[in-house]
Write a protein that binds this DNA or RNA. Structure first.
Lengths: 366, 366
DNA sequence: TTGAAAGCGCTAACAG
DNA sequence: CTGTTAGCGCTTTCAA
């Protein structure tokens, strides 16, 4: 009777060895060290394996023995499927996948539903290390990862003792943007930002919420904005900072709407991501507000759609981030001292930022 | 001295048990069956674990014992990073990720560089099963997957004995499209298709190459087109069929150019994917050829960009395909008899198909 | 070139 | 509620 290719555990290395009348070592060598036995014997082993339906050494047993899994785990803040919709996450994934592929490693996407506290998936991930991308500082999944006795690399996260890190200087990057706006003459600004904490909030982010933000990147950007604008004599507590939990263009649009409704005198909306900024552009168009004549809108990331739209933004090498994270994790040589890779950002002067219209112009202009 | 969180194998279940003076079972239960021991004892175990830096049961050892890995492997035809750029692959991934997430399983992207024959990554994947998405029939990675003693589900692949399958009726779908074009009056058509085999070919696909195509989906579509057009009295051997290896809009544009250069009397270009069709639209615009007045262009897939462009195409539920594949694999209950899921497609009448201009009109028209 | 012995770290009967 | 007993399937010194 023909054996189905999907039969259950048809044979093991030991049973094969027994059948052949050789030792397990020999069979193992036939697969892992072809040079350690005669070609004839090897052929005999492999042939018999085929005949018995032996599928080759079990990867899990081998992993247990060798202490290597041949895979890298990725922990994201969002539902897995989100990763395939967000352009930023996607670029990161692409870069990481590139690095894994180069090393012949698999990439395991670890389900880490932010709504649930269940970290079993982290505990059961058979991987040689983790890459953690932009999860909140207090996420239990992150804690679970750090407890695992494998190396990890964090990206867009605050630095953690003994853990490698990849990121950009968010603070410097957005400071440049803020100064750019100040130079243009803006004094009344609004901020549209991504989620600041695990608890959902769609609306104004209080000063306290800003201070307690558990998403490192967002917090760094807000803090820097607060500092620059305060230094310029603007009372930060009067600046509308509107937060959105979902990262989508619709969110960006509604956040912009909320800012404009709250403070119609705002001349510029600084968004902490391109997606939010693109949404803000949508909203401006809907309202017949001309950009940049009536309103300046800026983003952050430099995703392709932003470039296409001529958005004034900060470009950061997201794909490179992913690749760097993967390399850091897989480069066993340099391990030991904790390392940090900081990539460069660049202010892109698009067509969505310009000098503010003076109030007179705005109220009584042509 | 403080113990680094990244220390190497600080302790094992056995050493913990020894330290506590209890049996290994008890420690194991503390983690896996909290109801099997007193809360106090459990607390004592967990506390001691923390003190000793025991990170919880090793996932690999557990997998070996339980014969479950908690992950699904995905085999794609392309470099991993491609998966994050192709809209179709992306939707599929999203659906698959959704299914995995629901089941609390991880998703392991298995590197399967099509240029290399190295299948070690398949052999070393610690997974409970594989999903195989659109790889050529003769791909060694596919063969390696089928040898593994775990279930698999193939998608957009020919059916394989004892292997579950998800797909659409490509034949019927594209037949509907072909008939639509015939009804509109087209008699001179050109075909732009994706890669047909592992060996690169950018140019006309001979009849023989069409017949030997190892990408199931492309072959099914071509075969159906050949049949319908032949039945309508068109000599298929005179129909330009142009193949492109890379799946990109640029490829689509150059394929369209090649078709138009080969046979300027073509009134319709049937593309076997939306990406190719979008590229064809680009080329038409470049040449100042009006669509659909001067040229009809059709696609296949129904990706968002196609919808946006008003492309006349076949919509297939790609995300659902991924989800169905995942569910099939993870649904251990119904396993046994091989199953097949066939999803529905729909002809979308966009704005890129219309009746052909008669030759007179074309040559001497307004 | 081959074999024997010794686990990798864990879970699952089954008995107490 | 807890312990004893048996492996899961493999790789790897070390000797022969």
């Amino acid at each position: 009777m023909a054996r189905s290719t999907n039969a259950r555990r048809p044979a093991t290395l030991a049973s094969l060895a027994a059948e052949l009348g050789v030792s397990r070592t020999t069979v193992s060598n036939a697969y892992n060290r072809p040079d350690q036995l005669s070609p004839e014997l090897r052929k005999r082993v492999l042939d018999t394996a085929r005949r018995l339906g032996y599928p080759g050494p079990d990867p899990v047993a081998r992993s247990l023995r060798t202490r290597r899994a041949g895979a890298v785990g990725l922990l994201l803040t969002e539902n897995l499927s989100y990763a395939f919709r967000d352009p930023g996450a996607l670029s990161f994934l692409e870069g990481l996948a590139l690095a894994c592929e180069d090393a012949g490693h698999g990439l395991l996407l670890v389900p880490a539903n932010p709504e649930r506290e269940d970290v079993a998936s982290v505990h059961s991930a058979g991987v040689d290390g983790f890459v953690v991308y932009s999860v909140p500082e207090d996420d239990p999944h992150l804690a679970a990862v750090l407890e695992r006795p494998v190396p990890s690399v964090v990206c867009d996260q605050p630095s953690i003792p003994d853990v490698d890190r990849v990121g950009v200087d968010d603070r410097a990057a957005i400071t440049a943007m803020a100064k750019h706006l100040l130079d243009l003459g803006h004094r009344r600004v609004g901020i549209s930002c991504m989620r600041l904490a695990r608890a959902r909030n769609d609306g104004p982010a209080s000063l306290q919420r800003q201070a307690n933000a558990s998403f490192h990147v967002q917090k760094a950007r807000l803090t820097a904005l607060a500092e620059v604008f305060s230094d310029a004599g603007i009372d930060w507590s009067t600046v509308p900072v509107v937060e959105r939990f979902d990262h989508s263009q619709e969110s960006g649009a509604s956040a912009a709407a909320q800012i404009l409704d709250t403070d119609p005198e705002v001349t510029a909306i600084v968004c902490t991501s391109d997606i939010l900024a693109l949404g803000a552009l949508d909203e401006a168009e809907r309202r017949g507000v001309k950009v940049p004549d009536d309103l300046t809108i800026t983003g952050f990331d430099g995703i392709p759609d932003a470039e296409r739209a001529g958005l004034t933004t900060i470009r950061q090498p997201i794909l490179e981030k992913g690749r760097a994270a993967g390399r850091l994790l897989l480069d066993t040589a340099e391990r030991g001292r904790p390392r940090e890779i900081r990539l460069e950002t660049q202010l892109i002067e698009g067509t969505t930022a310009g000098p503010p219209r003076s109030s007179e112009e705005r109220w009584f202009g042509p």
